[in-house]
Amino acid sequence: MIEVRGLRLRYGGVAALDGVDLALRAGEFVALLGASGSGKTTLLRSLAGLEFPEAGQVLVEGRDMAAVPARERRVGFVFQNYALFRHMTVFENIAFGLRIKPRRVRPGRAEIARRVEELLALVRLSGMGGRYPDQLSGGQRQRVALARALAIEPRVLLLDEPFGALDAKVRKELRHWLRGLHDRLGLTSLFVTHDQDEALELADRVAVMRDGRVVQFDTPEALLAAPADAGVAGFLGDAVPVDCVVREGRAWFEGLPPVAVEGVAEGKAVAFLRPADLLAESGDGGARVVAARQDGRGVRLTVEVGAMLLEATPAPGWVPRRGEACRITVLAARVFPA
């Protein structure tokens, strides 16, 4: 559907894209996840024809896009700050892509009006067509930007930090709505985010970017279960790196019981431990509860093991109290040679 091969781009001598390979299937909802400066926005802009890579290919439906200017790519782009036309009403913003079509393919006035109304309804902004962008809330602007991008019936929808500028509640709401819309319209979408929760929760597949490269591209489950390297493991799932030594098929920690590992060379290593990997039980086991707080997702437990502070999951039925002694079992760990 859309494919990127060996894409390279430098800004002032610094590699923004350093050989990116990525292939999207039709109908997929893919997240580009990475820290700021990892090249994800640059990649997105390259797909839209807003940046010009020095090497590599962008293929859309098998066709090389190198000589195709942005205006002919039919790529829907939702900008981070929405980039709505500030002097146009919501209606005119959405109609723009239809009104500027060459005369012979341009829909008639009534048809354009019908399509815009349809899109307004789709993004739940019916009746707001006469407003100007500065009369809308952030979430509403975002949906106008989306409707405007959808008006040209894009082959692929690209979204740059689509929820970045919204407050937490609106963001949550909007992301489920967007995912629903994607499924309903049968879109192929690629969105940039630095928020791993967003990526893991929404996307069919997540491309993790680092230093201008896609370091791993897989389903959220696979990413969490088998991170490609220590960097990805550390980036995902609130993992804490803990030094260990691998010997006889097990990782040995200081102060924690060993855990079985597979396929890791013997010697010094780093284990990435997530809260769900550590089970804390009542009893004297060399660990101590430092803090226990209830939040929306359950009890978050912080335990002290030697000099380390780790997040753990309390055993069912146990109500931990601060200062209480406890015993830790390591259920699983992703271990990489140090």
């Binding site: 024809g49 200017p69 942005a70 205006r71 709505l84 036309f85 723009f96 892509g97 008006a151």
Partner: peptide, 16 residues
Amino acid sequence: RTEEEAAATLGAGGWR
């Protein structure tokens, strides 16, 4: 430049 970029992705040429 983002409004111009948006216009470009929507199919507008330089003059429009």
